[in-house]
Design a protein around this nucleic acid. Structure first.
Lengths: 247, 247
DNA sequence: GCTATAGTGCACTGGTCAGTGCAGAACTGT
DNA sequence: ACAGTTCTGCACTGACCAGTGCACTATAGC
């Protein structure tokens, strides 16, 4: 875990004509370290802008359809600069996916960390974490990452190694850790925390593919809450400790 | 396109480069039915061969990378014939996905139909159906279909309409129907069959994406059985009727 | 046999795009 | 101000590919 938590907030936006629900985030992030004049970004800033833009373009167009001219134009960068930084198109794809996976993992782990305090109603606790995990899963960039992985895993099998340790597995493990603590505190009844975490994750995200139509539909907030509630309800039927307030 | 169940298995697919496809009797089902006009058997056979091959090539290479020369060569057919049947590359993709979705749906519905007889232990019944559904999900062509949908849903949003009614939804509905029958017979305790079916499906398939590494790893049979068992176990904790043999 | 339909093989057009070369502009630290 | 690095704009090559045109062959129905 080197720079997982070091990334800054979304400094990159497509600003394309086909933006579905893009907020007004243009590329003029500026104001980071540069003085008033635009276009005085340092090398690292450019690199990050290229990575973010490349990821969005790759996800939107697909690897083969995405052109480096597109990415360069959208990142407000010369095509040469991309080659200067990454060498070729394939390396750019790998770097973009690695960077985005790091961000996604950080978001997911932050959500699971909501289970850190062991006080309060377990049901409320789990529903809250579940809702936040669903939020990560339904994020536009979350869908984009998953779409890109599905699409290119055949052409680039080494993407598996790249996301190894950055994907769902560490999240499930962290969740299992938290569930184990809850069980130790007598608030859950389970013998295999990993299996329980896997099933909770499945209950939370399993129906989202259909609900979100493969990421083309934004799942409304109350629907996310309902899914989280139903998932936790079923989960507690199986793993809840028989407490006084148990139904 | 209501002939979902009319397409039986294994009608398509010259697997290797040295396939047995000859000029004369390629995939001759030799049905003497001849509905409407006779003599169109040959054309229909070629059409189906093209569809099956095109689906595999699209899934393997991705839409943009797949070339019609590739498909034509692998289907043992002239490129012109493809254009003659489908017009252009996009139409071929749509037709291939529609045909494959029909087959996948038929397989899934057949699996759910295992719940038709209401006798026997509910746990055994559900585990069996679950195992078969997992088998459909982990099928090579199942992964290929999902991969292709994820990959191209942005370029061809109308694919959603094409798989509408051929995808997971009808399967979940059929499963809900069966669960409702079981509940009515007092063998399950549930108020919302659709929600219960959705959760059962989620428990069954939710962990498979990670286990199968996005379809690049074959999940061994005992692992499938274990997932089905765990899923049904949790499901019955939430929705099982308090029967004499209930734990 | 004859004819229409369907399929084949080849060559070709027009467009796209990864990657490169070059010359000059802009920014870096000193 | 200066030297070195980085970025930019433009033009270009070489390769690949969807889709077409044409001459020809194979099949099925009469």
């Amino acid at each position: 875990m080197t720079s997982v938590l070091a990334e800054t907030a979304g400094a990159v936006g497509p600003a394309g004509p086909a933006g579905p629900a893009g907020p007004g985030a243009t590329l003029d992030s500026s104001a980071a370290t540069a003085p008033g004049r635009a276009g005085t970004r340092r090398r690292a800033d450019r690199r990050e802008a290229i990575l973010g833009t490349a990821f969005m373009v790759f996800a939107r167009e697909g690897y083969a359809q995405a052109t480096l001219d597109m990415i360069a134009a959208e990142a407000r960068v010369a095509k040469h600069t991309i080659y200067n930084h990454f060498g070729d198109k394939q390396a750019l794809l790998r770097a973009a996916i690695a960077a985005e996976s790091d961000k996604a993992l950080a978001k997911n782990l932050a959500a699971v960390d909501g289970l850190r305090d062991l006080d309060g109603d377990v049901r409320v606790l789990l529903e809250d974490v579940g809702y936040r995990l669903i939020g990560c899963f339904c994020d536009e960039r979350g869908w984009a990452l998953r779409r890109l992985l599905y699409a290119e895993i055949n052409q680039f099998p080494d993407l598996l190694d790249i996301i190894q340790g950055r994907a769902a597995s560490p999240v499930t493990e962290a969740l299992a850790d938290r569930l184990a603590r809850l069980a130790l505190a007598g608030r859950l009844r389970l013998t295999d925390p990993a299996a329980a975490a896997e099933q909770l994750a499945a209950l939370l995200t399993g129906s989202l593919e259909a609900r979100a139509r493969f990421g083309t539909r934004a799942v409304p907030d109350d629907e996310k809450r309902a899914v989280a509630r139903a998932a936790v309800d079923t989960f507690l039927h199986a793993f809840g400790a028989p407490s006084p307030t148990d139904a």
